[in-house]
């Protein structure tokens, strides 16, 4: 087990390094971060409707929550789909403990990149907006929130990824996710949404990750604009924990099913399909 962790970790670090030295990958990771920074810049002096709280100050931590959710849900799913098509996963399967090493490596490399993309938004963001307050309480919140965020999203992302075996059908995942972001109070306060949308948003982890991040980076007074006039740490923990448990129950089953189906001829068939769709 320790040996697998070590090998998986080594794999993650190698992949992390590859991403950091590859312009195209860097762009893919950091493009959303730049987009967010530009959004924050243009929010300027706008305030949360009905209050005099800065909209930018509220959006900055919310978008950090969104980046964490994207890192855990989308990036892992995307990697699984692409790596399945090109045979990376089959190689892992042909290696002793290779699948575990692969998955640990993915968590390390995407975790590292997600952290990097957070910092890229956070550090300049603090200078762009007024009202961010990050104290000991905030650090404490991050200490339980971030690990929980990983466990609540990565297994779900991996489960999603194990369902699709064609990278070109990935839009099917992205669209509903963007819809979810729109109603999750990331860019616009959820309190201004109709009740039924609030209910839907509160089922999924994105809202809670945004809320948790706001609670870590905003002064206590900001809680007044949240649903229930509180940061609702207890509920945040509860919902994310349910997602974590669901993911941890689901992912091993789905990943095993996916791994079982990998074979040379399965990869060859996908290659055939990919080459055909390129020609068309």
């Amino acid at each position: 087990m320790i040996e697998t962790l070590r090998v998986g970790f080594a794999r993650g670090l190698i992949e992390f390094r590859h991403t950091l030295t590859n312009a195209q990958d860097l762009w893919g990771y950091f493009f959303p971060s730049f987009g967010l920074l530009i959004t924050l810049f243009f929010m300027g002096d706008a305030t949360v409707p009905g209050t005099d709280f800065s909209l930018g100050a509220s959006t900055l931590p919310s978008s950090l929550g969104m980046l964490v959710a994207f890192g855990g849900l989308i990036t892992i799913a995307q990697y699984l789909i692409v790596d399945r098509e090109d045979g990376t996963l089959l190689r892992a399967k042909a290696t002793p403990h290779g699948m575990n090493g692969y998955l640990i490596g993915k968590v390390v490399s995407t975790g590292g990149m997600t952290l990097a993309s957070l910092l890229i938004v956070l550090v300049p963001g603090i200078f762009l907006v007024d009202g961010i307050e990050f104290d000991a309480g905030g650090i404490l919140t991050l200490l339980w929130l971030l690990p929980l965020a990983v466990v609540a999203t990565v297994p779900i992302g991996a489960s999603i990824g194990s369902f699709f075996d064609n990278p070109r059908s990935f839009g099917l995942i992205m669209l509903p996710l963007f819809g979810l972001v729109a109603i999750s109070g990331i860019f616009y306060p959820i309190a201004a949404m109709p009740g039924w949308l609030q209910a839907i948003a509160q089922i999924f982890p994105i809202y809670w990750l945004g809320l948790g991040m706001r609670s870590a980076f905003l002064p206590g007074g900001f809680a007044a604009v949240e649903l229930g006039d509180s940061w609702r740490h207890f509920e945040t923990f509860g919902v994310l924990a349910v997602w974590a448990v669901a993911g941890l129950l689901l992912a091993p089953v789905l990943l095993r099913r996916m791994a079982r189906r990998e074979s040379g001829s399965a990869v060859a068939a996908r290659r055939e399909r990919a080459l055909n769709s390129m020609v068309r």
């Binding site: 590859n22 090109d86 045979g87 990376t88 089959l90 190689r91 042909a94 040379g264 060859a268 290659r271």
Partner: peptide
């Protein structure tokens, strides 16, 4: 295995 383009980087 008959590889294609895995581990390209």
């Amino acid at each position: 295995l008959q590889s294609w383009r895995d581990h390209g980087k």
